[in-house]
């Protein structure tokens, strides 16, 4: 018995950062088997086998598994579940879609966004947009949980686990993939970047968002946004940071023209250093900022971009 960790695989490539962070949590519970699922995922499985602390890697390849559709992937996980006490995954849009389905099929509760493992049955998780931390103890036979990656260090490489191919399950045929709209970018991925520069409604337009992107590129940072900036069309949805967007905890978070609503803070307040640039000295973002600059962003951000070596 042990832990089944569902790896994050995108287009056949292992998302090493997310998987390695969830692995750190999984190792605290027990012996870890990693499951890679995809239309082609042997490379991902080889990469997962190299992570330190992985006992075994299972690789399930099938066309039905290409796009993280919940129904076939949940059925596959169920077919393996009797061998494990825990089924966990990094908390991503894919696992948030799939694992609650798995849990209900097993008649157990899902434990979402785990931020600390207390023991094999007991976990911490944030509620109310991170304004409270709850410690929950599960009485279920199998625990199904998603792991909030921003609170765990990534496991290192150095493993040499065996990779075993496993058969696909029958596809229930309830859903069908049509298309993905994914913007290609050379920037680091938002949830794993060391530096994030985010813009809010204060930036004012999609065009002016280039000021934010300019600073980000100078810093080698990922770009984030508030919900107001996304809703206004200044930035794409996958840049949203917050309670209902992505949760980030970089070494440096720069919030520009963002007021600091609790829903936004929920996604970034665990960053190591927070910088806020806002023209309103009363903006709540200053209450969490290590360094606050009261200034017009159109003046301050270009200057900052220039002055950073």
């Amino acid at each position: 018995m042990g832990v089944l960790l569902i790896a994050e695989v995108n287009s056949g490539t292992l998302s090493v950062d997310a998987t390695a962070k969830a692995l750190t949590a999984a190792k605290q519970i027990g012996d870890v088997t990693v499951l890679c699922v995809g239309s082609g995922c042997s490379d991902a499985a080889q990469a997962a086998a190299k992570l330190d602390g992985v006992s075994k890697v299972l690789c399930a390849q099938d066309d039905a598994y290409g796009h993280d559709l919940a129904e076939p992937v949940a059925d596959l996980i169920i077919s393996l579940s009797s061998d494990y006490t825990h089924i966990v995954a990094p908390s991503t849009s894919a696992s948030k879609n799939i694992l609650p389905r798995v849990a209900a099929l097993l008649d157990v509760m899902i434990i979402s966004e785990v931020t600390a493992v207390v023991d094999a049955d007991t976990f911490e998780r944030p509620i109310y947009a991170g304004n409270a931390i709850q410690t929950v103890k599960s009485s279920d036979l199998i625990k199904v949980a998603t792991i909030r990656t921003s609170t765990f260090e990534a496991a290192n490489e150095g493993g040499m686990a065996n990779v075993e191919s496993i058969d696909a399950c029958a596809n229930p045929g309830l859903s069908e993939w049509i298309e993905d709209k994914v913007a290609a970018s050379d920037r680091p991925e938002l949830t794993s970047a060391g530096i994030v520069v985010s813009g809010g409604r204060g930036v004012g337009s999609e065009d002016d968002f280039k000021i934010i992107e300019g600073l980000a590129d100078k810093l080698g940072a990922a770009v984030g946004a508030s919900r107001a900036a996304v809703d206004s069309g200044y930035a794409p949805n996958d840049w949203q940071v917050g309670q209902t967007g992505k949760v980030v905890a970089p070494d440096l978070y720069v919030a520009v023209g963002i007021s600091g609503a609790i829903q936004h803070l929920a996604g970034m307040k665990d960053s190591k250093i927070i910088v806020a640039i806002n023209k309103d000295e009363e903006a709540p973002i200053f209450q969490v900022a290590d360094f606050g600059l009261v200034a017009d962003l159109f003046d301050a951000v270009p200057k900052l971009t220039e002055q950073i070596a």
């Binding site: 304004n131 409270a132 009485s139 209450q287 360094f291 600059l293």
Partner: peptide, 19 residues
């Protein structure tokens, strides 16, 4: 199925400075 063992406030961030 989940017993709430405890609920606590998260650690507050220390106030920073204005530059």
């Amino acid at each position: 199925r989940l017993k709430i063992a405890s609920t606590s406030e998260p650690e507050a961030r220390l106030a920073g400075i204005k530059v």
